[in-house]
Design a protein around this nucleic acid. Structure first.
Ligand SMILES: [Mn+2]
Ligand SMILES: [Mn+2]
Ligand SMILES: [Zn+2]
Ligand SMILES: [Zn+2]
Lengths: 137, 137
DNA sequence: ACCAAATTGCGACAAATTTGCAAAACAAAA
DNA sequence: TTTTGTTTTGCAAATTTGTCGCAATTTGGT
């Protein structure tokens, strides 16, 4: 089966094509924790130009393929809920590591209702919890 | 009464002093919506050097005096819950405006318990909801 | 294979952020 | 208050990060 099926579909729907560079950037994100732009640019070195990495992530974000997260001291990118199970993040302010937290149906509902109650139409959200991880208490 | 009391206490506790430049940066944040680094640097112009603004915000973040938020396409800084009522943010992906959402006791509790259930010790969190605002539906 | 449109790499550039270091401000002790 | 050692600052330079135009390449469609 084609692992790029959903990606391709999303791109096509927006009159964009799944090119070699875009596939490469997608691969860099696959099965990885959130990564900074700098890391992505570095890892793409030789394969994909810096400007293209920037342009690709901008496109991916616009199409909802990736999410940009504020983790610790830098922006990080991670594949969105389409490719990854929706989840939240815990950031340990002692050791600096970040962890995935599973989504909680009850919580997800409440988040939406909090926004709806104020007259907004929520499409999604990012939740970032910080404190100490089990290793650092 | 000294409006800098809590700030001073926090700094002292960490063997740092409440200097003129730090007070100025704090003032820039007071009673304002989240601001980008660029805006803060500009507003500090003439009073506090660029490098000092950067160093101050890094310190303030480390000490939990400010929070760095991922709002729309930029980082923004705002005073943390110690100085401002705890709240969340809604970002309208149509008009780009961001709004404050009041804290919801039920939600706050659930957020903490989700982290605790996984063995983490939560100290705080940031919740960013996005979608359409009332004006943009 | 051919064409038209989309995308890329490659500078060159502009903006943002970091750094070293000497001077100034500061806290603590005398 | 003056001295003393430490922290913090401003300045200037260096580095890093992000943007842009454009010619060359790649892509999807005929
Ligand atoms: Mn994650
Ligand atoms: Mn706010
Ligand atoms: Zn930890
Ligand atoms: Zn709006």
């Amino acid at each position: 089966m084609d692992p790029y099926k959903d990606l391709k579909a999303l791109l096509t729907k927006n009159r964009a094509s799944l090119t070699k560079p875009r596939q490469k950037v997608f691969d860099l994100l696959m099965g990885q924790s959130p990564q900074t732009m700098q890391v992505l640019v570095k890892r793409a070195e030789g394969k994909v130009d810096r400007a293209t990495v920037y342009r690709t992530l901008e496109l991916f974000e616009r199409l909802g393929i990736v999410n940009r997260l504020n983790i610790g001291w830098k922006y990080k990118y991670e594949l969105s809920d389409i490719f990854l199970e929706h989840h939240h993040h815990f950031y340990c302010s002692n050791c600096g590591k970040s962890y995935d937290l599973p989504a909680n149906p009850m919580l997800e509902t409440m988040v939406d209702s909090v926004a709806a109650k104020e007259g907004f139409s929520p499409r999604g959200h990012q939740l970032e919890i910080y404190g100490h991880c089990p290793n650092c208490r």
